[in-house]
Nucleic acid binder design. Sequence first.
DNA 1: TTGAAAGCGCTAACAT
DNA 2: ATGTTAGCGCTTTCAA
Lengths: 337, 337
Amino acid sequence: MVSIRDVARYANVSTATVSRALRGLSSVTAETRARVESAAAELGYVLPFNASSLASGLTNSVGVVAPFTSRWFFGTVITGIERVLRDEGLDLVLYGIGDAESRTRLFEQMSMRRRVDAMIVLCLPLTKRELAAVRSLGVPVVFVGTRVAGFSSVRIEDFTASAHAVDYLIRLGHERIGLICDDDPAPFGFTTPRQRKQGYLSALHAAGITPLPQWQAVGGFTVAGGEAAMNTLLDGDSPPTAVFALSDEMAYGALRTLRRRRRTVPEDVSLVGFDNHELAAALDLTTVAQPVVEQGSEAVRVLLDELRGRSTTPRDVVVPTELVVRASSGSPVGMPN
Amino acid sequence: MVSIRDVARYANVSTATVSRALRGLSSVTAETRARVESAAAELGYVLPFNASSLASGLTNSVGVVAPFTSRWFFGTVITGIERVLRDEGLDLVLYGIGDAESRTRLFEQMSMRRRVDAMIVLCLPLTKRELAAVRSLGVPVVFVGTRVAGFSSVRIEDFTASAHAVDYLIRLGHERIGLICDDDPAPFGFTTPRQRKQGYLSALHAAGITPLPQWQAVGGFTVAGGEAAMNTLLDGDSPPTAVFALSDEMAYGALRTLRRRRRTVPEDVSLVGFDNHELAAALDLTTVAQPVVEQGSEAVRVLLDELRGRSTTPRDVVVPTELVVRASSGSPVGMPN
DNA sequence: TTGAAAGCGCTAACAT
DNA sequence: ATGTTAGCGCTTTCAA
């Protein structure tokens, strides 16, 4: 196995100079660097990660904790994260926690201890205990999608964005507005659903509308859940003329129910989702768009600032949302447009 | 920073024994192991990855190369990979290559050299040059979705599955069957589109049907592409009564076009997709289902067999596909059912 | 089964 | 700007 000494000999320099040159330190003349680089290329040498890491105390890796990797939102955030990390020469180590058991295991063992220089936690409000564990890592941590005291975060304003979407339905003339939401409290301790729901309630309240209990149905943030929830809503007393689903995926399920029950959209029922999921345009769904790739790349930038000592106080980056109006929403029948 | 020596002192054993106990080696009495484990827990100690790695020559990490992380298929395969790796105590290092530039960079620098013990390459046929680079890593490599001489692979039979889907449409009575496919040759060097297309041609040929050129349109494996492709198909001479889209996402685009142009499905046009994407059920799309999580976990199992010397010859694991018939397909109008 | 001690292959401090 | 050298903190012999 070719070692730094082989490269040093080949390039007629010391091992220290090889190390400096290959890491891009500035204290090497261009000429020397070129010689070292071509020697390394010739011999097919790259600095072995483990030896460098042991000697320097850095891992050049960032851990990403994600509850799901297959859902569109998470995969897309990860794309944004990966891209910036790679540009910076940092590796991404993925920690998935699909279920409660793996979540427990991850935070009990803290296998990322001494394995990563920094962490990004996606949309996962942590328990006190977990937070303490994360804090004990002693590395910068950025949260995406949740705000956590003492740490930086990148997120959207769920409350405001929801209120705005519901207000839009009210201004279209709707008075009976349904909600497809999540259980309360939500699994995994997500706070996003509650904030979006509060936005819905707040908008109704501001318009002087008292929401009826049968306007709310639980969709569990899945397509199947949204499908069932819409059935529940349609079967209730004085069913809504417009429905706000707290995620696009639940809205897709709702659309399926409407299609099956021969209700036209938006004439019979208007539908608004949340996320601007990649298929929302294909399904002509009005929705609250949030920048997703950008939240990932922004999280890395915040992280790098902390990692490189450019910033010491936690930052709270709020990225803008935007209501994207498509064909799934309109004024209720009988209303002037 | 607490070191292995602290733990050794605390548990009254040597550092070597601590190392053995914490790695689960069998040459430690249960009593000693318990003492060491509780000492480690007490002190909050885990074996630091970099020092272990340097001393042992192993990284306990597996590299995963993926062209996209946000697309459903890739995110879902990664879920399967991550789950099994984590159970085995291995870390997943993600190498995304969203564009040609990062692809070049990855294979030129081979930053995964000495960084991972093994690799999984997702749906990415490599060039000769890239293959040589990968081979030079000297670690086990498993390909998902493509077969590569000299390496193990986990994949489906694209050709057969496609032929079967088209044959199903033929047996429904369709004679003009369209195809929404990819450019030829496909970007990134994907071979999957071509194999699926060959399956289509083969099924038609077997039924004595000569495909007309205007039955084929390019959809680029995106929703928007599928949308445009379906427009092209509808505008051609003697347009198809059934369309086979080589991916569900292109089928979603096609559905949108059909909806906009007021064609009913399946009365006016039958539609069949490929993948059984998570939303295929929600859209009532008939499609070729492939097990995706399983391909990821199976890839890891194959990898582990090679990594642990249980297998030395490359394996080619083919997982089964299944045609899932839903409401988007039926006999052409005027045919008995 | 356990302990002692010699590396693993770099980086960082210090010297020049 | 470059060279010298002592660690970094384990794992792996080898011996007991």
